[in-house]
């Protein structure tokens, strides 16, 4: 079976800096995979290469075996890569209902229809309702997003990515900045994502990584330093030295 997402010899240079250095990476189908690394390790660049924000200097990105290196962002979304952002990227003036309906309508190919009605498509209405329910947004679906608490906004961020019905979901620090009280609900939601979605979690929070991931890749200075299941990675001396820093020596 082909991998959900794969990169082969991915290289990204900015001027003289190599932000992504020959990264070959595989995300298996249904994986719960975490990408970790210290600040400046090139995690964000890597995500941008996967989603088509950046075009690599060399190498390939394969989605379900298909070469998508040359495709732009929208085309990749259509083929099944969705992402959340480290900093919320929401439609603040909309309601959660409208935001989810928008993503669903774009996926169903309704977005180009200027005379259609949103409520006239049963599929759009049903799928929007499903997602609102799954992410526990139904009781606030008519509030303005910008007025909601941060934890809820974070949920909408994930729900919106999920609404694109991705085969690959990239979660960029989903719990970052969420207050302790709202954190549990969010982690539950991440944990209960359906099995057929392959998830790549980009995270700082080791607690979350070890709770959630069945496989971990460590990125340092744009290179893959180590990869394996959580216990292997936790034992790896190179990871301790590079990532956990002084802690390994002390």
């Amino acid at each position: 079976m082909t991998a959900a997402l794969e990169t082969i010899g991915l290289i990204m240079r900015f001027g003289g800096i190599t932000a992504t250095d020959d990264v070959s990476f595989t995300l298996e189908r249904g994986a719960r995979h975490a990408l970790i690394g210290p600040n400046g390790a090139g995690k964000t660049t890597f995500v941008n290469l996967l989603t088509g924000v950046l075009t690599p200097s060399a190498g390939k990105v394969l989605l379900g075996g298909e070469d998508i290196t040359a495709l732009n962002r929208e085309a990749r979304v259509k083929r099944g890569i969705a992402r959340t952002f480290q900093i919320n990227q929401l439609f603040g003036a909309m309601t959660p209902l409208e935001m989810i309906a928008l993503v669903v309508s774009e996926r169903l190919g309704e977005g180009g229809r200027p005379l259609a009605r949103l409520d006239a498509s049963p599929r759009l209405v049903e799928e929007t309702a499903d997602i609102l329910a799954r992410f526990r947004l139904d009781d606030i679906m008519d509030e303005r997003i910008s007025t909601l608490p941060y934890g809820k906004q974070r949920q909408i961020e994930i729900a919106a990515a999920f609404a694109a019905k991705p085969s690959v979901l990239l979660l960029d620090e989903p719990a970052a900045g969420v207050p302790e009280a709202e954190r549990r609900e969010l982690l539950d939601l991440v944990g209960s994502l359906p099995e057929d979605v392959s998830v790549l979690l980009i995270e700082h929070d080791m607690d979350l990584v070890f709770r959630f991931a069945t496989r971990i890749t460590v990125l340092v200075n744009g290179r893959v330093l180590a990869e394996g299941d959580p216990s292997e990675v936790a034992r790896d001396p190179a990871v301790k030295a590079a990532y956990l820093g002084e802690g390994a020596h002390g």
């Binding site: 928008l102 200027p114 990515a161």
Partner: peptide, 29 residues
């Protein structure tokens, strides 16, 4: 009025509010 309340109109508001998210949601801006 019909147009701004259509899926097309909703996608325009999405682009106005946040082009980054709109593009990531598959809107051909």
């Amino acid at each position: 009025r019909r147009i701004v309340h259509s899926p097309f109109g909703l996608s325009l508001r999405a682009v106005r509010d946040n082009p980054l998210r709109a593009a990531s949601s598959g809107v051909p801006i």
